[in-house]
Design a protein around this nucleic acid. Sequence first.
DNA 1: ACCTCACTGTTTATGGCGTACACAATGTAT
DNA 2: ATACATTGTGTACGCCATAAACAGTGAGGT
Lengths: 318, 318
Amino acid sequence: MTRGKAKDPDRGVRLLWGETEHDPRPGLSLVRIVRAAIELADEEGLAGLSMRKVAERLGFTTMSLYRHIPGRDQLVDLMRDEVMGERPAAPAAAGRAAGEPVPSEEPLGESGEHVADERAGRVRAEPSGGGWRARLETCAREGWELRRRHPWLAEVRGTRHIPGPNVIAHYEYMLSVVADTGLPPGEVIAVVGLIGRFVDAEALLLVEVAQAERHSGVSEQEWWGTQGSLFERLDRYPTLSRLWEAGGWDHPEDSFEFGLARLLDGVELLIQQRDETRDENALCKECGTPVDRAPSGRPRAYCSRACQQRAYRKRRSP
Amino acid sequence: MTRGKAKDPDRGVRLLWGETEHDPRPGLSLVRIVRAAIELADEEGLAGLSMRKVAERLGFTTMSLYRHIPGRDQLVDLMRDEVMGERPAAPAAAGRAAGEPVPSEEPLGESGEHVADERAGRVRAEPSGGGWRARLETCAREGWELRRRHPWLAEVRGTRHIPGPNVIAHYEYMLSVVADTGLPPGEVIAVVGLIGRFVDAEALLLVEVAQAERHSGVSEQEWWGTQGSLFERLDRYPTLSRLWEAGGWDHPEDSFEFGLARLLDGVELLIQQRDETRDENALCKECGTPVDRAPSGRPRAYCSRACQQRAYRKRRSP
DNA sequence: ACCTCACTGTTTATGGCGTACACAATGTAT
DNA sequence: ATACATTGTGTACGCCATAAACAGTGAGGT
């Protein structure tokens, strides 16, 4: 894979961000290829996605695809951005980033004001109440939901995938949610990355199970049953055996829900810590110099008795 | 991949758990193949690991490998277990699970008491002070370290890899560490899985960067620089721009350290909650019946005023 | 000594993959 | 009408895993 050279390195960007030339003519077109590829990947997974099969599904030869797309990698980028444009559940109108839904060919929703000169990807409709935690959780859940519809999304690996408008819109929104917490920039980015990678990792787990079941014809349980002689050897591991007998594997936690809760808890703790630190490093309300924090007790508002007194006098007789 | 049928489903288990037949004869052997494969994967990644190249490296034909190993998948299983047997940093002697280091051919360490009838994998030397958190963190760090030595380890995907003795020993140890916290079985397993998947996901990130750099010859920075026209389009995303200008990407957090800290914080919180719950569900100190928890305030020690009074009298005049 | 047989390595072949390259058909601009 | 850009096709290359048939080699039994 990815053996092709980049004769025109900008081609990938333009395909994703360029105005969609939706010609109703017969024959191949970018969107048709992308659509067919998504269908195929939905059915057979990303490993089952091949240029040959996409072409077959469209009734063309393999090489015809290359007249529209530089190669397989760019096709995947386009597929990713396409599905990221699907609305999560309730349809949403334009947002603050000059939005207009991007799903090509037919926006499917009622057309709002057209901006059309540049695509900016689908963005969230409104802040949609709740604190950062509820919103971040919703983001994670929508990502999870999306990956249940399009499992291959979690299989997309590699760091050099060009983000399209919809991918960026998602990213922008998540960043804005976390940025509202007042965390420093580096940590905002880290939190968003952490959550995103978590969702992907968990989704990948499910994909792998499904994939193995599909193309082996044997369910996960049955398959492990086949490896009977393995389990006999596990008796000598005390913790393993104890947990097994306690039914730990019979009633497993939902690993997505469990992990998400732990992760959000961890982030919440970080935010609390930062808040405290900020308070402790607060400036004197009177003179502006930094207040040194006390080892315990209520954080001080003034740097010295003198300032405290000055402020008191001001309050009494302004 | 994985197109071979399982004529002998137990073969995989026996290869991993069977006594190592280390024949010093010339020619091929299981261990030689596994060693060569590990070298190759260390250099070229799991995607670069092919039966052809392994055979070439050993000076045999491709098909000769199949006389010793059912297929590529099983080879990967064997490689995984092999490297899991490497000692983390300080060499460790036998543990409680009838340990003996498994790294085949030559154990490399000073031989302790031989048990030898069955392999049980390398296990930790001792509880090695510190609470669950320090120990779990050490586990994660060792996993991280191992994946830096053998990056392909993170690339091993799929749910149907048979664990060998060393893999199981690691798992057993992590389970025991978390089990010590008193969490219910399902949650113990969930925590260990969560941490494990996190380490893998983060390691995979690095692998992907390195891999892309290696076989494209262009560094990550340079490559993204090539996509210049992308960044021009990102100006209209407010949060993205703000974080960019604030230098969020210039001084990024160490995503492994950051994520691990959040994760452990989240787990710690869970454990605290469970402890409180346990206290709240504590039994009456006098009569033993469960105490119903109050919505707020100090948890009650007695189920009723009557029991509280009885206990008080006992204390006064025993 | 001879035959048998298991073990080990080789040769050949099949079907899959991404894509480079030369060629053909078609519609548009000059 | 001619030149040209666009679009689709056919062939070919090198890579992958592995199935199947074949060949050499040494051990055991007769």
